[in-house]
Design a protein around this nucleic acid. Structure first.
Lengths: 135, 135
DNA sequence: TTAAAACTATAAAGCTACTATAAGGTCAAT
DNA sequence: ATTGACCTTATAGTAGCTTTATAGTTTTAA
């Protein structure tokens, strides 16, 4: 399988595949005489794993860590679970922060309507006055 | 006022101030004979405005847009309100996406405990099997 | 058969919003 | 005279790709 076929199979761009290889997330495949990369089914699975981790919001570094666990399959999997727990709490704190932000934005928006001039805009005034309680 | 004082006043690093100037968000200040930047109160207000916008999650491009409205104070402020509305809906969709992600992560986490080997880890198996409904 | 289209390769730059580092000039105090 | 705190510019690094440039290869259509 050449890079274009693998890309289509998994639903990524060819450059992304080369990028993952360069980052050490995907093992370097064999090459044809012309230098073209030749991929196996294993590569397909590896790439799909990476993509699913990315969809879960894991960083490339975290994916790398998970791969290192996979390479040593007889350890206890506590580290895997811990990584996920950390990620979950990270996601939760993002949600909390965004909810607070939304509240702030909505109240700022409520301070203006569309019938004013920029000079009297409640939104701009609200930002400029800066009665913003951090975080 | 020199750059260090302004930085301390507003609570940013001096490099950040130079960066904003370079990006066209902060007007270039006068210079002393030795080349040091000299800031006025106006600069302080401008910088504070930028920082408050950043705390609200606005991008530098959006801030630039707001500044362009400020420069023309007798337009109606519909564009300002529209910018904020767009930003609010952006934040809301981020929240929704993160909540869906959290659910997915929590259910993945529930598929394993710490008493297994990596080989049998429910989390890794869950990612590899890839029963993930996109988005 | 040849020419265009489609694919592959590498290397380097661009994106966002800074942060950090390097190498050096200026100024006040000791 | 030198230490330390401040200022200057220029450049590189961060994350995770995407884009661009330049060039070689293979496939397809005329």
């Amino acid at each position: 399988m050449r890079i274009g076929q693998l890309a289509q199979l998994v639903g990524v761009e060819t450059q992304t595949i080369r990028f993952y290889e360069q980052q050490g997330l995907l093992p370097p495949p064999d090459r044809q005489d012309n230098g073209y990369r030749v991929y196996t089914e294993k590569h397909g699975e590896g790439l799909a794993f990476i993509r699913r981790c990315r969809m879960l919001g894991l960083s490339l570094a975290e994916i790398h860590e998970l791969q290192s666990y996979q390479d040593d399959p007889h350890q206890p999997c506590t580290a895997v679970n811990a990584l996920l727990d950390d990620h979950i709490s990270h996601v939760r704190s993002q949600i909390t922060a965004l909810q607070a932000l939304e509240k702030q934005l909505v109240s700022l928006r409520a301070s203006c309507n569309d019938d004013r001039e920029v000079e009297a805009c409640g939104v701009l005034a609200g930002i400029s006055e800066g009665n913003m309680h951090q975080q």
